[in-house]
Design a protein around this nucleic acid. Sequence first.
RNA 1: GGGCAUGUAGCUUAGUUGGUAGAGCAGCCGACUCUUAAUCGGCAGGUCUUCGGUUCGAAUCCGAACAUGCCCA
Length: 492
Amino acid sequence: MEELSELLLQRRRKVDALWEAGINPYPNNFKPRHTSADIIATYNDVETLDASDDNLSVAGRILARRSFGKAAFIQLQDRKGRIQLYVKKDEVGDEAFAAFETFDIGDIVGAEGFPFRTKTGELSLHVRTIRLLVKSLLPLPEKFHGLTDIETRYRQRYVDLIVNPDAREIFIKRSRIVNLIRSFMTSRDFLEVETPMMHQIPGGATARPFITYHNTLDMELYLRIAPELYLKRLVVGGLDRVFEINRNFRNEGISVRHNPEFTMMEFYQAYATYEDLMEFTEELFCHVAQDLLGTLDFTNQGLDISFQRPWKRLTVRDAVLEYGDIDARQLDDRDLAYSYSRSIGLTLPEGISYGKLLMEIFEEVAEHKLIQPTFITAYPTEVSPLSRKNDHNPDIVDRFELFIGGREIANAFSELNDPVDQKERFLAQVAEKDKGDEEAHYMDEDYVRALEYGLPPTAGEGIGIDRLVMLLTDSPSIRDVILFPQLRKEAK
RNA sequence: GGGCAUGUAGCUUAGUUGGUAGAGCAGCCGACUCUUAAUCGGCAGGUCUUCGGUUCGAAUCCGAACAUGCCCA
């Protein structure tokens, strides 16, 4: 038997009393014809409301209540916002008013009435009828401070959404951002597709996968770490421009920038290069920012950020030279570069390859300083097993990553479409895996077979949607832009 | 995985040197027909995250566990 506090028992007794009086506390026969925003939009600028005999109806949750014996104001919240209701005993009748007096903050009600302005000028609904639609059993957080405990905000996001308008606003903006991206892609003649989330061979990224199991097929499956290899199979199949906005899963640490499942848009365009995608990315991001924020200049965590084009472009090497305390002669010499890595506090394996060493140094000295949008190019071939080698220098690939606010936001490259080269790169990855690198790529024979049929020259890109939303909503943690972020089991 | 911090009523919190927990909001009862954190009077609400230790005595000191946050890996 669950022990309930007096507070909770009181609410349950109210429900029992309703059932005993023959009243269903959870009816579903009220259809609101208006929202709070409809009413404000229609009447806010109307001078004289007294003569209005419009009959409006709204439904929503009671957030606050100010009673005066035979009349009361309540604040109602619906999906569009909040509106004040004025309930007067003379207007609704003795019986309905008596019922109204039992309503609690948190209850959901339906009301009909006419618009009017209070003495202080607030547009409100003068209620003719009001009734209970849902009896709430749990008390809401207090009205002034709201819910601030961050753990409860994540665990009980439904409460957060009720009482914190800022939280609601972030998720409304998130939806708009995704819609803007989708319509932009569609307007450029990209086809939206859905590829498998459960992979027999996890591929397309350097990451550890989650493993699951299919009973009937009696086999292990991996939650996808990226859709890349499937999307490129579609380009082989003649779907020359495709995109997918969906979840990826990576079995790695959790931080303010990482959630085990996160949303990525990947897209592939045949007959394009990674340089074309830099232009494309600038256009896409500017389109989204302009529509969402009305500007290309905004702040993120106290930093001024500008999307004004063109965006800076730097090679990995030049970024290290610009932001690190090392000159070209040292950086280009493997042993001197290794010494430098030690001097800045990195402890890397003695035998680390030059490419990996360069990337470690880049991440340490440059990444967090890339505040304004910056395309970093010329990645080492060995850390880019799916990218096309540069025509003039086979040690680097035609790839960029986009950094904004010190965070990686996107990753793109001209695709490796030489099946022989691809097979060799997979074999190199398998060798790394055999040496104990759990993040190294798996061999995917079918993907190589697809390339043997011929992948058109193509460029592709992945954009981290959660991080983009963080950027555009000025959110400090990825958990602020994911409705239900991953947490440990709740303590009892 | 490591370091630091936090955990008190439904929510937001106070709690001094160790002496058996105090408030605001929410709730309940009462008054009030234009409030905006409404106001006024009264009442009730606590296994101080959990387990163990020190002590005559622990919310407070010590240890461990659990959860969360930040930083690092």
